[in-house]
């Protein structure tokens, strides 16, 4: 494993994309970033711009008005990137999504729009579960390479 691959594992930067939902998962995500769990131990940082990110952390089911934004933010994240869906809404749509009578306002899980690499179900998942999911995301990131 070269130094570049190691660096990719050592400093994954998170961009937190909240797309609809009840804020429960966001609170837990922020708890995971706070001093009690302190992901900076492993070099994980919350970055303010998707252009800096390696890991896109999505929470919540996607409302139809939010579809272009989700796609755009995903495309702004430079390769190699990993998407971690946190919470049942982001994994499978939970209460808000249904195939048969389609919801007039809500599309469902972001998986319908962008490829998700790691799913962390839970309503809301505990911060430990989110860290566990991010660690799995890092392992997937290690396998990927930048597209030239």
């Amino acid at each position: 494993m070269g130094i570049m691959d190691k660096a990719r594992i050592y400093s994954p930067w998170l961009y937190h994309l909240h797309c609809g939902g009840c804020n429960g998962c966001d609170i837990e995500t922020l708890a995971a970033l706070a001093p009690r769990f302190d992901v900076e131990r492993f070099g994980i940082q919350l970055v303010p711009s998707p252009r800096h990110a390696d890991i896109l952390l999505t929470t919540g089911c996607v409302p139809k008005q939010f579809i272009p934004m989700v796609k755009r933010v995903y495309e702004q994240v430079p390769e190699p990137k990993v998407v971690v869906a946190v919470g049942s809404c982001a994994c499978g749509g939970s209460l808000f999504y249904d195939d048969a009578p389609e919801n007039y306002a809500i599309l469902g899980h972001p998986d319908l729009l962008i490829p998700v690499d790691v799913y962390v179900p839970g309503c809301a998942p505990k911060p430990e579960a989110i860290i566990n999911g991010v660690v799995q995301g890092i392992l997937k990131l290690a396998e990927k390479r930048a597209k030239k």
Binding site: D111, G122, E128, Q136
Partner: peptide
Amino acid sequence: KFEIAVPNR
């Protein structure tokens, strides 16, 4: 138990 993270559906 709450630690669950899976790679695909």
